[in-house]
């Protein structure tokens, strides 16, 4: 139809009206497309864009209890860049990134490969069991772990005492970060495993058949076929984990009553922003911290993505 109209126009008229004519049709198509995405756009605008713009706006002011609100430009951001407490929180997040994320993704990968190999018996049940912690709301799982961590009457402490060991204080300042990493790993291994497992399921079986004919072992299959095929899934889970680590909030906020001196206001950047806004009544600075955190997350996620892309190009 399109080609027809254009050709007829061409014969009748040398002037380039064809642009206008096709665009009317196109416009109608576009319009209905916009109609379909409109609900998303409206909600996106109302629920995400406006609040973001608003917090960006208020991050340019300072409100003091005495003295009211003043415009200060980027002063809050200058403070954030120099704020040792913000750095400290970012440092903890970096530790989580370097220690917890590899452990969690490694475990998820091992589980996914093991389940996919077909040698694990009752793999459906196992898959469900490994995934189940993810279905437990993080509030519940944190409370549960907090209870188990208790030194005198908690599960870990009582087990240690029953075999004659001193009860470890898993909520003490030096250890609490690792206790939190443990909770996060427990909760998210299953989730990451499912993503990797579905990616494995998408590998066409002809590839395996060919490999088997060539005499490849299960290990060789995993190393040379499955893991390379998993690269997009690994990238995805890594980026999710990076963002997730930066946004850790529930765990410190619920464990802080159990370990009030080990978890300070600025334990993680997100928790810091919350405390600034609702405990210290420094709403404006909290907005600046949140924005700065967003920038850091974008940089780190982009760096992760870029480094994996470069690898691919190198190959």
């Amino acid at each position: 139809m399109n080609a027809q109209t254009t050709s007829s126009v061409k014969t009748k008229n040398t002037r380039p009206v064809k642009v206008r004519k096709t665009s009317r049709v196109k416009r109608r198509t576009n319009l209905s497309a916009y109609g379909f995405v409109a609900p998303f756009l409206i909600i996106f605008f109302l629920m995400l864009f406006i609040p973001l713009a608003y917090s960006g706006y208020i991050s340019l002011f300072i409100e003091r209890i005495v003295g009211g609100i003043n415009f200060v430009g980027l002063e809050n951001y200058a403070r954030a860049i120099e704020d040792p407490r913000f750095h400290e929180g970012l440092g903890r997040t970096a530790l989580i990134l370097l220690i917890q994320v590899p452990i969690m993704l490694g475990l998820a990968l091992i589980f996914a490969l093991a389940l996919d190999s077909g040698y694990a018996r009752g793999s459906n049940l196992l898959r469900l069991l490994i995934f189940m912690p993810y279905a437990v709301p993080s509030v519940v799982s944190t409370l549960m772990w907090g209870y188990m961590y208790g030194q005198n009457f908690g599960l870990v402490g009582q087990l240690a005492t029953s075999i004659g060991l001193p009860a470890p204080d898993l909520l003490s300042p030096g250890v609490i970060l690792f206790s939190i990493m443990n909770i996060v790993t427990w909760a998210f291994v299953g989730y990451n495993m499912i993503i990797m497992y579905s990616a494995l399921k998408a590998i066409p079986s002809e590839v395996y058949e060919a490999a088997e004919i060539d005499g490849a072992s299960q290990f060789r299959l995993a190393w040379s076929i499955k893991i390379p095929a998993l690269r997009p899934a690994l990238l995805l889970t890594t980026i999710f984990s990076v963002i997730g680590s930066f946004q850790i909030f529930v765990e410190p906020s619920l464990l802080s009553p159990l370990a009030p001196s080990a978890i300070g206001q600025s334990f993680t950047p997100n928790y810091y922003a919350y405390n600034l806004a609702f405990v210290n009544s420094e709403l404006n600075y909290a907005a600046a911290i949140a924005f700065s955190l967003g920038v850091v997350i974008m940089i780190v996620s982009y760096a992760v993505q870029l480094s994996t892309q470069r690898k691919r190009v190198a190959e």
Binding site: G146, G150, N152, L258
Partner: peptide, 12 residues
């Protein structure tokens, strides 16, 4: 100097 109003504390 245990935290108060926690499970541990009630047990204590």
């Amino acid at each position: 100097t245990d935290p108060d109003f926690t499970d541990e504390w009630y047990q204590g």
